[in-house]
């Protein structure tokens, strides 16, 4: 994988805390998101999906120890000084966090926040140009009444509008990469669809790479692109989103999909993965999923399997690489 465009993450490790109490949250993640591509990081809480996204942005500063390499285009982000990294954030990488209210200054208008971003990163010299561009951006993210929103403060907007304003901020400097961390989780179901569509639309127009973090299979399905399923700090399965969700190869992906309620399953008989997901950094020897895995063999408890190529752009970190059959009670569907 020698790519000069887009985001390349190679063997990323993120560790929090001191040596004696280290919490190893991300344990060797390798992924590539080309320009104009979408990559969905799917995982449950504690899987390390958000930590991966934030580590790419180096948002943890001194609180985390990072290992591995992250490059964006020709720039090696992991080698940049903190100061240089600051200008990369926002300029080359946009971030859309989960909670739009925390990302906006509650006291200032959306317009002035957009203008500031444009001027700080040198996109627009004059205030007048910046204002014009800010209005265009609001229009770009599908805000129906840009002048009103331009002059509005965050609390005057609905959740969906706020999230759009945050997206406008994130894409203001035409970043090469947009990282969205659970961008629709705080939104109502019927509004989620609109925001996801907006991401795809923006991507088509600007050709940026999109890395979207979610726990929601529905969101992943909607977005398409490629997917990486994370469990206990590792990628356990990658491939084209629709293919992975239609025919998962890793027992965890299978179990996760089976546990979603859907019509035809009698009440109380949802197929479940036993046990619970490990907490951040809580990992024993061998495959982290082995204690919950219905197909685990003795070797699973000794060595953690690496992602193995299955052809057709698919990979899974499981010695059982054949398609995993659905759990028994799901067959009745």
């Amino acid at each position: 994988m020698t790519a000069t465009t887009g985001l390349q993450v190679t063997d990323l490790h993120t560790t929090f805390g001191s040596k004696s109490r280290a919490v190893h949250a991300v344990r060797g993640v390798t992924l590539h998101v080309g320009a104009g591509e979408t990559f969905v990081l799917l995982g449950e809480s504690g899987s390390g999906k958000s930590v991966t996204a934030r580590s790419i942005l180096r948002l943890y500063g001194d609180t985390a120890h990072l290992g591995g390499r992250v490059t964006l285009g020709d720039t090696e982000l992991t080698a940049l000084s903190p100061k240089a990294m600051r200008s990369v954030r926002g300029r080359c990488i946009g971030l859309v966090p989960q909670d739009p209210t925390a990302a906006l200054d509650p006291l200032r208008t959306i317009g002035s926040q957009l203008v500031e971003v444009l001027q700080v990163h040198g996109m627009q010299r004059s205030k007048l140009d910046a204002r014009g561009r800010a209005r265009e951006l609001l229009e770009l993210v599908g805000i129906p009444d840009p002048p009103r929103v331009f002059a509005a403060r965050p609390h005057e907007l609905s959740g969906g509008m706020r999230q759009r304003a945050v997206i406008a901020l994130a894409v203001a400097c035409e970043p090469e990469l947009l990282i969205a961390d659970e961008p629709t989780t705080a939104l109502d179901v019927t509004v989620q669809a609109l925001v996801l569509e907006l991401f795809l639309d923006l991507q088509r127009r600007t050709g940026m790479a999109l890395l979207l973090v979610t726990h929601d299979v529905g969101v992943a399905e909607e977005l398409g692109g490629r997917i990486g399923v994370m469990y206990a700090g590792r990628l356990v399965e990658t491939g084209a989103t629709r293919e992975v969700l239609a025919e998962p190869r890793h027992p965890y992906t299978r179990g996760l999909l089976d546990s979603l309620p859907r019509p035809g399953i009698p009440r109380g008989e949802l197929p479940v993965i036993g046990g619970r997901p490990p907490m951040t950094g809580e990992v024993e020897a061998g495959c982290a999923f082995a204690p919950r895995c219905p197909r685990a063999v003795s070797s699973c408890r000794e060595t953690a399997p690496e992602l193995a190529d299955l052809g057709a752009g698919r990979a899974a970190a499981c010695p059982v690489v054949n398609p995993v059959p659905a759990l028994t009670s799901a067959v009745s569907a």
Binding site: G159, T190, A193
Partner: peptide, 23 residues
């Protein structure tokens, strides 16, 4: 009907509503 269409895994075509949620 819209809510049903946005439920994943049903193979229904998603209906996207315009407009914001009223307050």
């Amino acid at each position: 009907i819209t809510l049903l269409s946005s439920t994943p895994g049903l193979g229904r075509e998603r209906i996207v509503l315009d407009g914001e949620l009223p307050s």
